[in-house]
Design a protein around this nucleic acid. Structure first.
Lengths: 360, 360
DNA sequence: GCCAAAATTTGAACCGATCCAACGAAAGTG
DNA sequence: CACTTTCGTTGGATCGGTTCAAATTTTGGC
């Protein structure tokens, strides 16, 4: 039997419906976009034709071109896509971004990729009205790509001394780190160790202050500066404070602690550059029956919800994550060509149970 | 001073660049899409013109229309957008969906909305190649909307007796619930209570088996059937088992437990239709110094990671969430007009510490 | 029954690119 | 030198809609 229709049926277009219903395509368009201006009889006829031909409604691809606005904002990161759902900080941030989007009816497109070239292409071809860029890692490159799209965009947590011409929302990392360090020195601690975030794409391992000063990611650099400025202020010799660069995961944090606690003079206070690091550290310490805050105190950074239910609950520097998300969305959606700006939000010290007086 | 340029500058188009560089728009297009076929001198000239005019590269809106494929899949739910980042089940599912997308280079668009009309519009105008629909709540309506787009789509956890013609990936809720109930009866429990998922948009409160049989969402209905079939099998009078319908949040779960434990004959075993419910229940019980599993045992449903670290770790029915996500993405991306199908995946009982012998 | 006003409908223009058949020029061949 | 290739470029067609000024039909008033 010969097939009655060709195997590949071209999708039905609005024009097909119009022809079938015997109206112009202009009228057919109106039936879907502004039904009230079409005479009822015609409207029904067109709708019937659409139904009969299995037409799925006007294709947004077509509308988009004319309308110009996509009504969606892109959220980009150099991490794999699952970062948005795995990482505690990202999740809280995304939840607040999505609330702000919901409120205005905008959609969210997640933009990321397994490798760099793919990422570039994905950013170049993302159908969005603007970008929110997560700068945790590989920030500068990402910002560059986003800027090249010439769309409104705002960087979250961008390195503070990067190009001043990009809109960015971040927190005062130096002040926050200072708060954390001061809290511990006030509790009498003198022997510190720092568990750092990545400062480049280089992997993990012990590092030095000098290395960190060259860090590609200045969020990391600024936090270290904040820590050390405060420690120096109370005459602690920061050149002897071990710094271990992690990649924010369990493996590298545990390796860092192995390293730090292998030394003769173990710290009584740990400064962790993220709550995630601090939480992994808590697990490590518990496994070795090192009590917190009895033997060692630890202070995180971020203020993610998990810190409230950890054992013990985590003392940390809380970032106004929800506020940052809200501001970011606002910046994109209300972008009226206003001058790009850089907002530094304040952070707060939240004292919970992971920090206490120095045992010494 | 009169402005030198009009306030509103039309965005630069590829055609503008072509004109400026003195080439045809076809050649200009090639410079960006297939640079290797353009003579170097021309290529540089066009690129220079683009740079000079601040052109951000070919607008994907235009390309899209011609190319047809968006290279993104939409994930839709009737919950607010933040559901994707708040709900443990959704998060695990999204993580696996995003891994599958990453692997193929596809993007993800989150589709949702505050209200129903907005949701309909968002689905109709989403720029995606297909939909994965989360059917937790308001599933049928969502499936209908998605189907009307005439795009490939697959429903996750769709009500089992809904339209057979839609592709769906789900688990065997009846068998899973049976497993949970049997586990508890084998431990000697005879006095049960059920903490149910929503069965309609009706809010929360105590309900009956008859009400549940009419449930709009048959995931809920099937789990109840599974529980009761197993309980009946060992001669437990299910008409006396209290059922409390929650909305999967702390408030409604706690209200449910208040209600259930207000009765004279309190249960020794709780069947929770989701891990989230079970986790909230654990909190409630701990606050009242009711020990688990000493005084009461509880079994959840889903197998989210949080269940592994709760106090005590949660016995639950684990769904192959990662596998479901992978299959869903595959179904969308490989959609070749193959017959829509319905896949029921198996579940497993995972015994942890929240269930133990009946105290009686 | 005639005319202006109101209500509908039409069809061309446009949105911003990609694709491709056709063409011109330069290079190679006999 | 005529003749085929090869390479690069051109410009029109197309993707699937929306929009709007102009044309047409209806309605209403007298």
């Amino acid at each position: 039997m010969a097939p009655l229709t060709s195997g590949k049926t071209r999708p039905i277009r609005l024009a097909d419906i119009a022809k079938a219903a015997g109206v112009s395509h202009g009228t057919a368009s109106n039936v879907f976009a502004r039904p009230e201006i079409v005479r009822e009889e015609v409207r029904e006829r067109v709708k019937a034709a659409a139904e009969a031909m299995g037409y799925g409604g006007p294709d947004p691809k077509g509308r988009l071109l004319r309308a110009g606005k996509v009504n969606a904002i892109g959220v980009a990161t150099a991490e794999p896509l699952s970062y948005f759902f795995d990482d505690p900080f990202a999740r809280v941030m995304m939840a607040s971004i999505s609330q702000a989007c919901d409120a205005t009816g905008a959609g969210i497109s997640l933009v990321s990729a397994a490798n760099k070239e793919q990422l570039a292409w994905n950013i170049q071809s993302a159908l969005v009205d603007g970008f929110i860029v997560f700068c945790v890692d590989g920030g500068s490159k990402l910002v560059e790509l986003a800027r090249d799209r010439k769309l409104p965009f705002v960087a979250l947590d961008l390195d503070s001394d990067d190009d001043e011409a990009v809109a960015a929302i971040g927190v005062d990392n130096i002040a926050g780190a200072g708060l954390a360090a001061r809290h511990l020195t006030e509790l009498g601690h003198r022997r510190f160790a720092v568990l750092a975030l990545p400062c480049a794409d280089a992997g993990f391992g012990p590092t030095t202050r000098e290395q960190m000063e060259k860090a590609l990611y200045s969020g990391t650099r600024d936090r270290l500066r904040g820590y050390f400025a405060e420690l120096s202020r109370v005459d602690i010799d920061v050149s002897h404070v071990p710094i271990y660069e992690t990649v924010n995961d369990e493996e590298s944090v545990w390796a860092g602690l192995d390293h730090i606690f292998a030394g003769a003079e173990t710290p009584t206070a740990i400064l962790a550059m993220s709550d995630r690091i601090a939480l992994h550290a808590l697990d490590w310490l518990r496994q070795r029956d090192i009590t917190v805050p009895g033997d060692v105190s630890i202070v995180g950074f971020d203020g993610v919800p998990e810190g409230a239910v950890s054992k013990p609950p985590l003392t940390t520097i809380v970032q106004p994550i929800a506020e940052m998300g809200r501001l970011a969305v606002k910046a994109i959606l209300e972008n009226d060509g206003s001058p790009t700006s850089r907002q530094l939000l304040p952070v707060e010290l939240l004292v919970r149970a992971s920090s206490g007086p120095s045992p010494a």
